[in-house]
Simulated assay, not measured.
Amino acid sequence: MKNPKSILIVLFALFLIVGCSTSNDSNEKPPTPNAPNETSITVTDTDGNIYQTVTICNQVWTKTNLNVSHYRNGDVIPQVTDPTEWVNLTTGAWCYYNNETANGTTYGKLYNWYAVNDSRGLAPNGWHVSTDAEWTTLGNCLQGAVAGKMKEAGTAHWASPNIDATNSSNFTGLPGGLRYFYNGSGVFRAIGNYGYWWTSSEYNATLAMPRYLGQYLSNSYSSHDFDKYNGFSVRCLKD
């Protein structure tokens, strides 16, 4: 028979090992959470495009511009390249900046406001095109150099000087430009200099209210009334 004292010593040693192990487990740090403002969810549109999302001040935004060519119910949103036809539309349409498909990869599509307002739904199910008031909520929460906090940093896409651009909100606003009315037709302007995003908010029968960021803007994410035939980018907000 083994010495009882030896057995007690072994049991005591095991107790210490188990106790220390339990103590260490209880003090282990939890898995590293997602980076501030980032979320792990994605959203898929009707065409199968997948969008990363970002949470800013309790709002969940798509992190890139919309690039869908069908309404939520599957109906086609027509692509309109002709400049004169574009400015005479009173129904939904989209185009690429300069009618170049390659621009869609980076900046998404430009939509007129009629597409935004169509009852068939432009945003994916469970999402919507943000209102002007929701942009105001975002800006009030960010405070300070709001435009700088929303613009992608650097000059990979923005022209210099991209004033105060830190993208600390992770909104990653890009200067996708616009399509607007000039000399009787729809023309493209301001890629690299300005990013414009439609809101779902209407000003009157012919005007609606987009928001925009510019290379020289630091603390302003401006709101203005524009004709509904203008072509702007779109970001979506979770319902």
Rank of each mutant, 00 (worst) to 15 (best):
K151F: 03
L110D: 01
Y216Q: 11
T64C: 06
Y96I: 04
S233H: 01
W94G: 00
N73P: 03
G231C: 07
C141I: 08
N98Q: 14
H224K: 13
A208E: 11
G121K: 02
L8C: 11
W127H: 06
C20A: 15
N183D: 13
K228W: 00
D118C: 04
G144D: 04
N98P: 00
C141Q: 10
W158D: 10
S222F: 03
G108R: 02
R235P: 00
S218F: 04
N27T: 11
H70R: 09
P83S: 11
P124H: 05
T32L: 15
I9N: 05
A156E: 10
A165R: 01
N230E: 05
D118R: 04
C95F: 00
T101E: 15
W86Y: 07
P33L: 13
G186M: 02
C141S: 09
S168I: 05
Y71K: 03
H157C: 08
E134R: 10
T136D: 14
E28Q: 13
N34Q: 15
K63N: 13
E85L: 12
N67V: 10
K2N: 11
K29A: 15
A115W: 05
Y203N: 13
N117Y: 11
S130Q: 02
S185V: 07
T91Y: 11
A208D: 05
G192S: 02
G192K: 01
W127E: 04
T53Q: 08
V234W: 01
L217F: 13
W86I: 03
T53R: 05
L11P: 00
Y196K: 08
R189F: 14
N162T: 10
G176H: 03
G139W: 01
R235N: 01
D118Q: 06
K238P: 00
T199S: 15
P4H: 10
C236V: 10
A102G: 07
F188H: 14
S168Y: 09
W135E: 03
N112V: 00
R120C: 06
V43N: 04
N3K: 15
S160Y: 12
A156P: 00
I50A: 11
Q79W: 05
L122P: 09
L8R: 14
A205S: 15
Y229D: 10
C20T: 14
A208C: 10
A115H: 04
R211L: 05
T32Y: 09
K109H: 11
G108L: 01
G48A: 08
N37Y: 12
S218W: 06
V129F: 03
S26H: 07
G184P: 08
N125S: 14
Q143S: 12
I7D: 07
A102R: 10
P161V: 12
V43P: 01
K29P: 00
I191G: 00
G177H: 08
V18S: 12
N183A: 14
W197A: 03
A133N: 10
N73T: 09
N167V: 04
P4N: 06
Y229V: 12
S223F: 01
V129N: 03
D47F: 12
R72T: 07
G177W: 04
F15E: 03
F12E: 07
T155R: 04
T206A: 13
N219Q: 08
Q143E: 09
W94V: 00
T155G: 10
V187I: 14
D239F: 07
F12M: 12
D118E: 04
A133G: 09
